Amino acid sequence: MRELSAHDRLGHLRGDGAGLDERWQDPAARVLPVSGGRIRARDGRPDWVPGVEVDTTTEGGVRILLGERDGATYFAWHVPGQEGEEWVGLREVGRHMMQDGWDRALVFHAVGMAEWLDRTRFCPRCGGALTAQQAGHVLVCDACSREHFPRIEPAVIMLITDGEPGSPEERCLLGSGLQWGPTRFSTLAGFAEPGESLEDSVRREVLEEAGVVVGEVQWFGSQAWPFPSSLMLGFFGRATSTEITVDPVELADARWFTRAELRAQAESGEISLPGRGISISRELIEAWYGGELPGHW
C-alpha cells in the first residue's frame, strides 16, 4: 500500500500565538481555505496560497495549524458556509492529489479538522458556545470550560476473496451502493461497533450486507477518511461461504469477480472502480489483482 507523506504536526506550537503569527506571515507558508468538507480549488487543484493573501477578518474564521513539511509551514483557514464553483469536495481534486501526492496528508488533515469544527457548534455537556483554541485543535466551552477534542470513528473496509489464492479461479467480492448507479463497484465497508474487535467488525459487516460468511481476516493498512471523521482500517478476508444475499437497505448489488472478469469489465466500462489516490478501496483491489486496473469513478 502506498503511504501518504506525513508532515510534522508541530503540536508543541499550537498554543504559541506569537509564533503562529510569525509563521503565518512567512512568505514560504501556505494556507488552504476550507469550509466544512469543501476546499477551495484552482485549476482542479487545492488552492494553497500565502498567508498574507488570506482575509482573516471574516467572521467565524478559524486558523488551523497543519504543520511543517520541507521547511515550510502549512495552515488551513476554515470559514463555514462558503459556496461557489471554486469550493469542491475531495473527490473533485482526487486525480491531482494522486499526482501531487505530497499534499494529500495535509489536505486530509485540513478537511478532517474543518468537518469537526463545522459540526461541533455547542458543548455536548451543557449546550454552551464553543471557542476554538490550540490552533483549531481544541474547542473550549464558554460556559462550563470543558475542553472538546476531535473524535475519530473507526470504520473497516475489506476485500473478501474466495478460491485458491493466486489461481485463475480466485474471486473477490465487490458491492454497489444504493446511490452509486449500476456501474460503480467497490469493497464493502462499515463502522466498528462497541464491544467488538475489528476482525469481528469485518465478519459482521460482510454477513449483514452480502450474506457471505468470512473466516480468516488479515490486516492491510489504514487511511484517514474525513467524511466526516473516519479512520478507514483495511483488511483482506477469506470467505467460507459464497452465496450472496444482498441487504437492500445497504447495497444495490454485490458480485464475485475473477481477476480476468474484473479487468475485462473495467476495460469495457461495464463496471467502474474507486479513483486511485483517494480511497484505500482501490489499493485493496489492486493489491489483490496484482497491478493497476483501468478506469475510475
Rank of each mutant, 00 (worst) to 15 (best):
C144A: 08
C144I: 06
C144F: 09
C144H: 12
S145M: 13
R146N: 14
R146I: 14
E147I: 02
H148Q: 09
H148L: 13
H148R: 07
P150N: 09
R151G: 09
I152P: 02
E153A: 09
E153D: 07
E153S: 09
E153W: 03
A155E: 10
V156C: 07
V156S: 06
V156R: 00
V156D: 01
I157T: 10
I157P: 00
M158C: 08
M158S: 15
L159R: 06
T161V: 12
T161P: 03
T161C: 06
D162M: 08
D162I: 08
G163Q: 10
G163A: 08
E164D: 13
P165R: 13
P165H: 15
G166V: 09
G166L: 12
S167F: 08
S167L: 07
S167N: 09
P168C: 08
E170G: 09
E170A: 15
R171S: 11
R171K: 15
R171Y: 03
C172P: 02
C172H: 03
C172N: 03
C172W: 01
L173M: 11
L173F: 10
L173V: 10
L174P: 06
L174Q: 08
L174M: 11
G177C: 03
L178N: 14
L178H: 05
Q179C: 04
P182E: 10
T183Q: 14
F185A: 04
S186E: 09
S186L: 06
L188T: 08
A189I: 01
A189L: 11
A189S: 14
A189F: 10
G190F: 01
F191N: 08
F191R: 13
A192P: 01
E193C: 00
E193T: 03
P194E: 15
G195F: 10
E199Q: 12
D200N: 14
D200I: 00
S201M: 05
R203C: 02
R204S: 01
L207S: 06
L207G: 01
L207T: 00
L207W: 05
E209G: 01
E209Q: 15
A210Q: 04
A210D: 04
A210F: 02
A210L: 04
G211T: 01
V212M: 04
V212I: 11
V212Y: 01
V212A: 05
V214D: 03
V214H: 03
G215H: 03
E216D: 13
E216W: 01
V217F: 02
V217S: 05
Q218I: 13
Q218F: 12
Q218V: 15
